[in-house]
Design a protein around this nucleic acid. Sequence first.
DNA 1: ATCGGTCTGTACACAAATGTACCGAAGCTC
DNA 2: GAGCTTCGGTACATTTGTGTACAGACCGAT
Lengths: 244, 244
Amino acid sequence: MSTPSSQPQQPENRIIAALNSTSYQHLLSQLERVTLPLGEVIYEPGDHIDYVYFPETAVFSMLCMMENGDTVEVGPVGREGIVGLNIFFGANTTPTELVVHVAGTAMKIKAELFRQELRSERSVLPHLLFRYSQMLLAMTGQCAACNKLHSLEQQLARWLLMMHDYVGNELLLTHDLIALTLGVRRPGISESALLFKQEGLINYQRGHIQMLSRQGLEAKACECYRVIREEYERLFADLPRISA
Amino acid sequence: MSTPSSQPQQPENRIIAALNSTSYQHLLSQLERVTLPLGEVIYEPGDHIDYVYFPETAVFSMLCMMENGDTVEVGPVGREGIVGLNIFFGANTTPTELVVHVAGTAMKIKAELFRQELRSERSVLPHLLFRYSQMLLAMTGQCAACNKLHSLEQQLARWLLMMHDYVGNELLLTHDLIALTLGVRRPGISESALLFKQEGLINYQRGHIQMLSRQGLEAKACECYRVIREEYERLFADLPRISA
DNA sequence: ATCGGTCTGTACACAAATGTACCGAAGCTC
DNA sequence: GAGCTTCGGTACATTTGTGTACAGACCGAT
């Protein structure tokens, strides 16, 4: 399902972009760019991790899956992060499901090569991954609390804003998929989405969502959006930005 | 509020107990045992981390706190873990509040000394902390999903079981404190607790809870208890157990 | 142009948790 | 042992979300 492209251009992942030139060159030669379609399942819960991914334009979703198949997003991963962080922690499996939520490109590397890379002396990779771990843990914790304390509407607004940060105004997702992500019933999403539409904050039809007013959405969202974002900014303020 | 004791005996924390003898001796000399009372706030959100704690009989709670003061537990930390993991990640502050949920002892070490310890070549400490990080991330994710998908009653049962694993049958907590932990309203706890009491699973009065039937509670709890526990067993199966 | 599948709007009975309030009882202090 | 504080039981109206069902609308494929 994944299409290797011929010539890796400049990677557009913030972690890769932040590597110093030595480790960068070395890692780059082992990275392969792939284009991933919406809905592709990268890992099932418990799967062995064969590849680690550095998202570029693609956005992934880490989902906690219950025995009955219900899912809730633990956190999205875009070009600020890495998919397969478990390898860094010394594991070779992942407890969460990983799916593609926004089709696009990512750089992938064989898990074994990634491990070698981590062991190499001069890499700043561990340093970056430590910081990302912090970020992820903070985000997951905030999500846990958000799931308990905030309304569907607030959470939807939060989530749309997070996606907006990744992909800009246009989002290709159905209400159904969003419901799976937020762990709620589909009509629940439709209802809140309709409200946002009527208030002119978003527009949509059949899987195409346009975000019209960030400000409006921010007013609807719970504080969690801001908290997570600020934590990210704080941790990664010194990293080079990706222009894309 | 914390009382240093004179003579550290054998530490009863699993991470410490798992250290090889070289790093163990070195670390031990820098650890100080403290007795912590119920309710003591170790860190406020955003606080600078002065000390890292290795819980022994004490149990801590990592709480995500909202702007209005509402709290939800992100995860408990007992003698299997460490309080102040952020230092390992390279941070010097913590995003979550940390409070003592079960009074008892812990070993503490100055954050700076702990950092030095991490840098020392021969320590297996990083290895252990990586594994604990995995555990924590998995637990937090599961909690996030649990908060969304499972009923108050299921969550209360899960939480009582987790506490049972730490402290055995007797638990010293009011409904009010449990409500803060689970991020729900106090009467909600009272209602479910009463149900459990009537079914003979627990007993309680004024802040003293006795757990009478693990089996019964397990039947009431959601799968999350089991999932988290199994993940822990899987990750730490090879560590020496603490007899206490 | 038609068909079929997918996506969204809507409805309704129901369950679960909320917010709030009040009372009695247990335990602590003096 | 009197009084205060804390803790737990209970009630009730309200909100939020669930589960389920169905219909209309849109889109792509034949």
